[in-house]
């Protein structure tokens, strides 16, 4: 008996629906551009040099050699912005994946098994949700900065970027978990599931093959909308000194910039703000489009 999972047509038509709007398509292009820049930064092949200081060249305005000008140590602001992209994307990606995995697993377990497992998991995320987000990530980021763990005999040291990603990931799974749990509960009573159980399917297989496909769209929506909030969170954490250390990040650039404005040095603030602005904007537009495309409630509605 086949389960009525979302057919290929569903995804295809959803995709087409999303891309039909020029706004969504352009946004996607911009997002991919950012991802490409981040990836490029990661490979390090011929990436612009953000590191070399040149004190003679401090605080130069934008010019041909330095399109975004230079900072207090004479470092190229464009290069820093590029590196900052890599930081922002990798943090947001890691955090998103972590949150996704945790939220998915816990949501499915809670929804499917019910009982005390459900109670426990519900209690866990209700508790986490009761702490205001900014407070929560501050607390986690603070505790996790520069920590050394001994796990199975090996020593792990969490620093900078990893601490932020970990803090954001460990706290960001709650929304998704709730949603998935709701969907899982709805689906577990469906006939095909009951039938499969009667046939003796193990819970694991059941979850993965029957329920999981029906909740994936929620995960996709949450992922795209959550990405943007992780970027903003990283900026704020870095600004407060809890973020990445020693490497450029948009948050640290803004922190420098607030003093620089007084000497009339506007370019670093402009660069970081613009970088954040465009990725946020496009992610919002694209995220909305994805949600509109995938959400069955809104399909067929004309706005």
């Amino acid at each position: 008996m086949t389960a009525p999972e979302k057919s290929r047509n569903y995804w295809l038509s959803a995709g087409r629906e999303v891309l039909r709007r020029p706004r969504a398509a352009v946004s996607l292009a911009v997002i991919l551009f950012y991802l490409a820049v981040a990836l490029w930064g990661f490979t390090g092949w011929k990436t612009p040099d953000w590191e070399t200081e040149n004190f003679e060249m401090a605080y130069r305005p934008p010019s041909r050699a330095h399109p975004f000008g230079t900072d207090i140590y004479g470092r190229d602001v464009l290069a820093k912005t590029v590196y900052g992209t890599r930081v922002a994307v990798s943090v947001a990606l890691t955090a998103s994946v972590l949150a996704l995995v945790i939220g998915l697993v816990l949501g499915l377990l809670a929804g499917y098994f019910g009982g005390w497992i459900d109670d426990l998991i519900t209690w866990l995320f209700s508790t986490l949700q009761s702490i205001p987000y900014i407070l929560l990530i501050l607390a986690f980021a603070f505790v996790l900065q520069d920590r050394t763990f001994t796990l199975f005999g090996a020593e792990f040291r969490i620093r900078g970027i990893n601490a932020v990603s970990l803090a954001l990931g460990l706290t960001g799974w709650v929304g998704l978990c709730r949603l998935i749990r709701g969907e899982a509960i709805k689906h577990r009573e469906r006939e095909y599931v009951l039938a499969a159980r009667a046939l003796g399917s193990s819970p694991g297989r059941l979850i993965v093959r029957q329920i999981l496909p029906n909740v994936v769209h929620l995960a996709v929506i949450t992922f795209s909308l959550g990405f943007v909030s992780y970027i903003h969170a990283e900026v704020i954490l870095s600004f407060l000194g809890l973020g990445v250390k020693h490497v450029p990040s948009w948050g640290v650039m803004i922190d420098d910039a607030k003093l620089e404005l007084f000497r009339g040095v506007w370019w670093q603030l402009a660069a970081a703000t613009a970088a954040i602005f465009f990725i946020s904007l496009t992610l919002h537009i694209f995220g909305d489009a994805v949600r509109d495309g995938l959400d069955p409630r809104l399909r067929g509605e004309r706005r």
Binding site: H232, I254, K258, A272, I276, F277, F278, S280, L281
Partner: peptide, 13 residues
């Protein structure tokens, strides 16, 4: 949408 894309920090500064 423009409003939510502007970083809060920049606004305050």
């Amino acid at each position: 949408v423009l409003g939510i894309s502007v970083p809060y920090l920049a606004l305050i500064i």
